[in-house]
Nucleic acid binder design. Structure first.
Lengths: 149, 149
DNA sequence: ATTGCTTGTATGTATATACATGTATTTATG
DNA sequence: CATAAATACATGTATATACATACAAGCAAT
């Protein structure tokens, strides 16, 4: 649905202003879907993000710094998120022996199993996005990349 | 910059998965810029959103319900946001005489003046998005609209 | 008018986020 | 080597958000 109808705003200054609102709105829309899907599994989108980064590294550990660097939302508090995940036994933490300021974080078996389950959900989630063809999705990706410069 | 490099994730299952991450990431990027611009004016993005809706209605009042309906982030707590704005004297509230459950919210002169100032800022903000041409922005808008179905 | 249902808004609470500051460790510099 | 600066992370605090619940006003049927 056209963004103007969606938020009942009839006129925009130009396509760029409309685009700004469109991206923010669409992201909120997607984010809500995302959180809804994750809810039954007891983790937030940011926690999910961290688990995926850790799986990408597995079995190598990642420091908190690496996590911040790769997270979608840089402003999230990686320390606290890791602690939440640790309480749920989805990750383990250990002071890095080479640099005792740093903390090595590793995903656990339980964490990997959770991601496996979520991968199945992910497929049904992505199916929701099939209003766009593979080609259109690729175009959208190019435009977003270009937008960010 | 390509989203993969941005978050150091080398492989994606397909363009749709990449797109999902790309939209969420780009939105976070834009949202941060947006908040940063609003910061000096002492209002949040959601509060700004409400003020703009009210300006669109001006001088007609909007009920809280209308605000929720038109807001970008439906989950925000419109009641509380309105109260924050009222404390700053940017809006006024009055129980609706026709339906005493409802609350009429109107933007004040001070609120309108603030928006005027922000409009100038907005131009410089939009300039940041000029990596895309008007035509590309229009394509992006079409794709996002189509994505949401 | 009474009852029960819906609607519009407010509030309580738990969690999340943003930002500043604190603390330990390492690295750099004289 | 001593000290200052930088780094990695943790924590305090204020604010924001999500969701459930509460509550008053209106509505509909009897």
């Amino acid at each position: 649905m056209e963004i103007g109808k969606e938020i009942k705003q009839t006129k925009f200054k130009n396509e760029h202003q409309k685009m700004l609102i469109n991206i923010l709105f669409t992201s909120g829309w997607l984010g809500a879907k995302h959180n809804f899907n994750l809810k039954p599994f007891g983790i937030s989108a940011q926690q999910f993000n961290i688990l995926r980064i850790l799986r990408g590294q597995h079995p190598k550990p990642a420091t908190v710094n690496i996590l911040i660097d790769r997270m979608l939302d840089k402003n999230s508090n990686a320390s606290r998120l890791v602690e939440k995940l640790r309480i749920k036994k989805l990750v383990e933490r250990a002071v890095c022996p080479e640099d005792r300021r740093a903390v090595n974080v590793v995903i656990t078996k339980k964490g990997l199993d959770l991601l496996d389950e979520l991968d199945k959900m992910d497929n049904t989630f992505l199916k929701d996005l099939k209003n766009l063809s593979e080609k259109e999705a690729a175009t959208l990706n190019l435009l977003l990349d270009k937008l960010r410069g």
